[in-house]
Nucleic acid binder design. Structure first.
Lengths: 204, 204, 204, 204
DNA sequence: AATGAATGAGCGTTCATTCAT
DNA sequence: GATGAATGAACGCTCATTCAT
């Protein structure tokens, strides 16, 4: 997910990360558009103008948040895909990896869910579309492979299945709170169980 | 679903409905905050100020759109619940009814999905919270009844199951386009099949 | 001098002209950059935001002021050039026309003098450069014709002469006040006399 | 030419001169208002805040640039006036001295031309007005003496003549580039020839 | 001497809203 | 019912300036 890095190339990357985390929280909680730059500054304990020492614009904060998240996501996904597991195991690994990302980047994921549809129109966020394409290729391909291998049902519309699995996982970011009752791995386990086996009692 | 009625007490309810449909489309497409009142007026072929003859405010349009949708939704849900079916049949009926509402009120559902979380904080939209409570009671209660009756699995966290089913259905509004390949009933059927039986091939 | 016209294509051109005249006065008096949009609004008896009902931006006001001035200037110049007078008579007519334009568009001319150098860099003001080229062609060409015809001195650097005449005329906008002691034509007459005959007493 | 001295009482006057020359270039090229202090710092290879070790403010840089220029200008002018030459010879010497100043202080002269009108309003730049008064006294007085002596024409409005000569000379700073084809003295010679004898061929 | 980070005032602009016509 | 013009509050952002290090 290549993207333009920020004004100061090297210095004080810690402060940036801190501020971006703050911004991400606010964006996630109130929506990107509804978030004023003053609101972020408040949350960071500084004045609005001071943010511009660190970032070019409100949009560039969003950019950095999203591209940072996608970079990490694809690191994880690529490792899973490179392992060349069977379809069912691949789906399991992808789902688990996804919940781990939700755990680590809850705010970024929530922002992504809410804003990416409008953002892809902007040249600057073109990489969101690229990611989506790659994403669909990975998931849909795995599902198709699973159907061909006889491990996934062949009586379902495959694109519907894809959307079902995709949404089912990512929407969790809207209610997930890190440090809650269940670990990401536990949530992944239960979600996988529901998605793969269904919620109805079997053998009826 | 309480709601304040509008400036002109009686006249031309058809024009209102028309304008609200237009506004809902724009809200859904661009987000409530990002939508300017001028943008709605453009889409309706009038000037921004003219909308205020019909509505008190931008917020009141949103209000009317959401409460109108919820009114109809609960009409359907209440009928289902009144039928006092078994848990599995109730879930099936609720899911089917939900997809029908998505079909009829796609824009309103999309707006609801994106905005309701922030809106509940406003006094004016308190009814959203009320609806949510009632909604959870209906679905969660049905699931619990199903577990007790042995028709739904008892090895899953019930609240996780609830969120899974709820999100799985409503998120569809983000990609659903009326008049597409599948009828709401067909989509409901496949979704139910996935949710109830899972996507994995059985008995292996 | 073609240029993008403003938001309302046809309506109320009088108010626009009024506001542009106000803006031009302020720009001329305080400089374009130093002029705040609030300052213009004050001078026009409205609030800053209200200006944006009439104009897209502060820059578009400047654009309209300058292009309006250049349009009229070239109307006059083209008429002079079309008359195909002798070189001396052409210079006399151009100088006279120039002082008339200074009389009519004093503010615009002053702005042009001060800002055009920086403005040509902007794509939007490309027409300023075009005008300058055409301007130089007209004046320099006439001077060269005059030297060839033996009516202007041939012992002077012709480009220096061009700049001398050009600046001499237009700088007057910085001190000229309409309705002063001398009419534009009278000032033109005296300037022409100085430029053509010199300020020293002859034949000594 | 009164002027407040700077923060460090004694140290490194060379660095100051260097930085002021840099600032003057940028002010001349982009205008005082449009020039950011960061822009100057960039050109000087330092950070914006660092300039404040050397100067009190952006305005004080401008002040020092302009007063430095005027100090030198009046050194030259005073020498000319002290020589008590004839009117024509005085004008010749003043013009020549002026072009020498333009050559040495091109940036300062350009800034002076563009900004002095607004600056005189500020208390701090009162000395600009003083200089202008003294300037007018010297030039206008010389011209009047010349008219009385019969060496300058008496059929011209004397104030118009004054402005003509004054502007004619100083506007040259807007296009003059040191190290160009003509030396300041050569330009002065040609300008004087034009101003005194006119550009028309004589004796017709 | 210079940096890094911040301040605070103000700027151009947007936008929901009002209201006389 | 709708328009044209305006309001006023707020927004994203810029920039001269400060100051501890």
């Amino acid at each position: 997910m290549p993207n333009n890095k920020k004004t100061p190339a090297t210095p004080a990357p810690e402060r940036r990360r801190q501020l971006l985390a703050t911004a991400a929280e606010v964006f996630a909680a109130e929506g990107y558009n509804a978030t004023t730059v003053r609101r972020i500054a408040d949350a960071a304990g500084m004045l609005a103008g001071s943010l511009y020492y660190h970032f070019d614009s409100k949009e560039s904060m969003l950019d950095e948040i999203l591209s940072g998240f996608l970079d990490e996501l694809w690191e994880g996904y690529d490792a899973v895909l490179a392992a060349a597991l069977g379809p069912r195991e691949t789906i399991e690994a992808l789902v688990t990896e996804s919940f781990r990302e939700i755990d680590r980047h809850r705010a970024a994921v929530a922002i992504y869910q809410k804003e990416s549809k409008h953002l892809v129109a902007h040249e600057r966020f073109r990489y969101l579309a690229d990611s989506q394409v790659k994403f669909e290729k990975a998931w849909l391909g795995t599902l198709e492979r699973g159907v061909a291998d006889g491990v996934f049902r062949d009586d379902l519309d495959i694109r519907l299945t894809y959307r079902f699995v995709r949404d089912t996982v990512w929407v969790a970011a809207s209610w997930y709170r890190p440090g809650g009752l269940h670990s990401p791995e536990e949530i992944a386990r239960q979600y996988l169980s529901m998605v793969l086996e269904g919620i109805a009692v079997r053998g009826r």
